[in-house]
Structure formats: structure tokens, C-alpha cells
Design a protein around this nucleic acid. Structure first.
Lengths: 202, 202
DNA sequence: AACACTAACTAACGCTCGTTAGCATGAGCG
DNA sequence: CGCTCATGCTAACGAGCGTTAGTTAGTGTT
């Protein structure tokens, strides 16, 4: 007893729906509290049928978390490329890209930050490495500005941590269609970052 | 067959050990991944014996998360009281207390931030209310400074979010006995907060 | 027309979970 | 000495978990 016309498009549709439902459920309830039966219900199929689209629940989490971190790393490279040589421009561009991502991909960012301990040791270590590389990218931006005499900070490391962390926090409260636009939040954070590194207001 | 001299002190000892083990395990693996058998093993008793000390796993989480938030609220009141009337002094004192707590009670802070979705609806809502009150306390500090003409910010709300969030992040990387002292981290964050609100460097 | 592939289904397996029941032991106290 | 209470133990329960097996229906290709 199958539905008469179950597929409006090719089967790719369902795979995308699984990923989409996982994003919402993992972000809302957390990975461990989300069961395959919840996930299946959200998609409109049976739990066992999920395995036509994903190898395992863990693989789904790995794909989400690593995909997110890869996107952040790409965004940072892209921002640096576009910003040109000025240290302040570069820091603002990087911060805005960071914040923009955390607004526009709230669920991914949220999962990537909260579910690290739900990853198996291998993927977890790789993810932490990527995070470290990402932070180092920001730290270098700050150190460059200090060396150029444009920034003044007590601790480049703590400052990069602080800038990244305040952006990560955006993912916990930002709502699309809320009172604040993505652009507004990104602009505020860009200015905050500049102030934090002791660059004069523009 | 019991141990001959199992209790060096009164039974209170074990209850404290349960709480202590829960702090470490919930922080390291997360609430859902921590089983009562893990917890019992860490304490050195059987899983069922835990129920001589706690009513349920959930009650343990509620106690930890609410105790943490209550302590933060007390710390904020205390900092305001000690700092006197100057807006900059008050903001620095509050920020330093916030950061200090997140250094000295890393595990509690970590759990309180990550395991909100593992709380049952009632306690969860109460915790979120406390968090809101805590944030409003910081926001008022900023607004007071703005009204006094000492601070200049684009958005008091976003700025208080950012200051709090960067402090929360400290709990993820700070290590007692590491290269940075609690005092040093608190001082850096105090200065960062001042810069973020546009107060002139002291 | 025959075949292979995709993607859905039902049923069930083996395991682990939080928790309870029932019992034993030793300390504190009259 | 004997009672009570706190605190530990073993055994087990019912539920729910991720996952697998086996099957079936529709779709596109040769």
C-alpha cells in the first residue's frame, strides 16, 4: 500500500528534507534527544526509511558540523580577499562575515558549537582542529593590525576569542524577521570589534 | 559484605561527591550522554544507590543550572553594590564578576548554557527568566552610562549580549593553572567592555 | 517486455537507559 | 542491648533507542 503519487520530483527531495529536519530538530532538542523516529516523523516517512538517505545518525551530525566549519573557513578567506590590505577593513570584513553566517545559519552554528561532545573522537578532533585554524585566522588579523600600529590590545588571543564568541552568541537569539536585520547586527559587531582592538572610531 | 570503615565522616560526604561528579561528567560528556552508571562509577557506588542522595537525574540538573544562575545574579548585585555610582566602575565590576565566575565555575557555567534543552519545560522556563533578568541588569548598566553621557553605543541590547557572551565563552577554554590567571582574564574583559561601550581608556 | 534501481514499508533485534523493589549492614542513640 | 535510620547492595523492569532484515511498489532504461 503505497501513496499513489508520492514524489513530486526526483528522490533527491527527501534527502534534502532529512537534512533540513535534522537541522531544526538537532538545534531545538539537541542531538541526543532527537530520535530517528522524531526525524522520520518530521520528514513524513518511517524511521527505517531514513537509512535510504543517510548511513547513520552520527554521519548526519558529522556532515552538519563539518560542513558548517568548512563554510566558516571559506567565509573568512573570502572576506580577507575582498577587504584589501587595510587592517581595520580586514577585521571588520571578517567579523561581519562571521556574524552574518551566525544569523543566516543559526541552526548549523548552534549545532556545531553545542554538539561537539556528541561527535565520535575522530570527527570531534578534526572539528576542533578546524575551529583552531579559524580562530588563528582572526588572531593573525589582530596581530597584523598591532604590528602596523593601528590596533592596541592587551592580548590578541583573548581579543580574538572575545570577538568570535560574541558572534557565536548571535545564533542563540537572532530571529529572521525580528526587529534587527542581519546587516544591522553585522554592522554593530563590526564596530564593536574595531573598538575592542583599540582602533579609532571611523 | 560491606567495607569495614566506609565513612570517614557523615553521609553528607557522598552527596557532595555525587554533585561533584555530576559537574564534571555533565560538563565533559553532556547530560544525555552521562548515565547514572557513569555517575555511580565516578562516586564509587552502584547506580541504584545514587537515589539515596538525589530524587532523579533531572533534579540534579535542575539544582546545578538554577544554583548557577542564582549565583550569577547574586554576583551581579554584589558587584553593583561594591562599585559605587560611577557608570564605568559599575560596568567593569559587573563584567569582572561575570568573567570571574565563568573562570572559577567553568563546569557549572558550561552546563547552565548547554543543557537548557535537557531541562523539562517548567524548570527551563524559570531558568530562561533568570537569564533574562541577568541580561537586563547588564543592559541597565549600559543605559545608565549612556544617559550620563559617559558611554556611546549603537545598541545597548546587542552590546550587553556581546559582553555577556564573550564572558560565557571563557568557560569553554579557561584552565586553572594555565598561562592566564583569573585576574588577568577578568581585567582584559573589563577593559574590552569599557571599549565596547565607547568609554575613554583609563 | 524485462530488468535494475530507488525508496518506501513492517517487523524485530539487541542493547542501554532511568528507575524501583527488596534486602543487608553498620552507626547513633535511648 | 535493641531500635531506627541512613546508605549501600543485587536484581530486574518497562521503555525506548539506533539499526538491520526482508519485502514491495513505482520509475526509468535497454
Amino acid at each position: 500500500m503505497r501513496d499513489v503519487s508520492p514524489e513530486p520530483g526526483p528522490g533527491r527531495r527527501t534527502s534534502a528534507a532529512v537534512r533540513e529536519a535534522a537541522l531544526t530538530l538537532f538545534a531545538e532538542r539537541g542531538y541526543e534527544l532527537t530520535t530517528m523516529r522524531h526525524l522520520a516523523e518530521a520528514v513524513g516517512i518511517q524511521a527505517a526509511s531514513l537509512y535510504n538517505h543517510i548511513p547513520s545518525k552520527q554521519a548526519l551530525l558529522v556532515e552538519i558540523t563539518h560542513g558548517t566549519m568548512d563554510a566558516l573557513l571559506r567565509g573568512l578567506r573570502e572576506a580577507k580577499r575582498r577587504a584589501g590590505p587595510d587592517p581595520a577593513d580586514r577585521l571588520v570584513a571578517a567579523t561581519e562575515a562571521h556574524v552574518r553566517f551566525h544569523c543566516e545559519h543559526r541552526r548549523e552554528a548552534f549545532i556545531g558549537n553545542r554538539e561537539i561532545s556528541s561527535l565520535e573522537p575522530g570527527p570531534r578532533q578534526e572539528l576542533l582542529d578546524k575551529r583552531r585554524r579559524y580562530e588563528h585566522g582572526f588572531r593573525r588579523l589582530i596581530q597584523d593590525g598591532v604590528r602596523a600600529g593601528r590596533f592596541s590590545v592587551r592580548s590578541p588571543k583573548l581579543t580574538s576569542f572575545a570577538i568570535l564568541e560574541m558572534g557565536i552568541g548571535v545564533a542563540t537569539w537572532f530571529r529572521e524577521g525580528g526587529p534587527l536585520s542581519v546587516d544591522a547586527v553585522a554592522a554593530v559587531h563590526g564596530e564593536l570589534a574595531l573598538r575592542m582592538v583599540g582602533a579609532p572610531d571611523r
